[in-house]
Nucleic acid binder design. Structure first.
Lengths: 68, 68
DNA sequence: TCAATAAGTAAGAAATACTTGACATTTCGT
DNA sequence: ACGAAATGTCAAGTATTTCTTACTTATTGA
């Protein structure tokens, strides 16, 4: 559908919380590869993963993700 | 990964805005089928579609979607 | 210098989201 | 009662996300 890109502050918020990629992956129930891909903005996550990550980062979705 | 279900208020908000499924589909850049599936909570949308729909409904994401 | 930890790359498989098209059913105005 | 508009169902195919596995590189500490 060629939908809009979405930027995220995962790395920024993760480092602010002093978490490793592995820790965030575990907390949000995905793999480390997925976190890497997301931090590099190689794809847009599903909404449920977005919620899980926002939760793990103690931030509302809109703080973590932003459409360009 | 067996991620959490997510409830949504798409139908409720769409009807409050007096929009048909087709109109919402067009506005948010997806098909009518997709809107039907989402209203029936048959699957969880991608984050970008979620943003597009929330936008079309003039509501923040957290108002439209909620993890169970 | 060695081992362990953190981050990155890549490729294929599996799962899920999304589209297309065709047809059925309900609702509603005239 | 009729036709049109809105909603729903089904199935098949495409696109995208996510996982798995395996290997690389850099950093740090004992």
């Amino acid at each position: 559908m060629a939908r809009a890109r979405i930027k995220n502050r995962i790395r920024e918020l993760r480092e602010a919380s002093e978490m490793t990629q592995s820790q965030l992956a575990k907390l949000s129930g995905c793999t480390r590869q997925t976190i890497i891909m997301l931090e590099q903005e190689r794809y847009v996550p599903s909404l449920s993963l977005a919620f899980a990550i926002a939760d793990a980062l103690n931030s509302p979705i809109e703080d973590v993700f932003e459409p360009e």
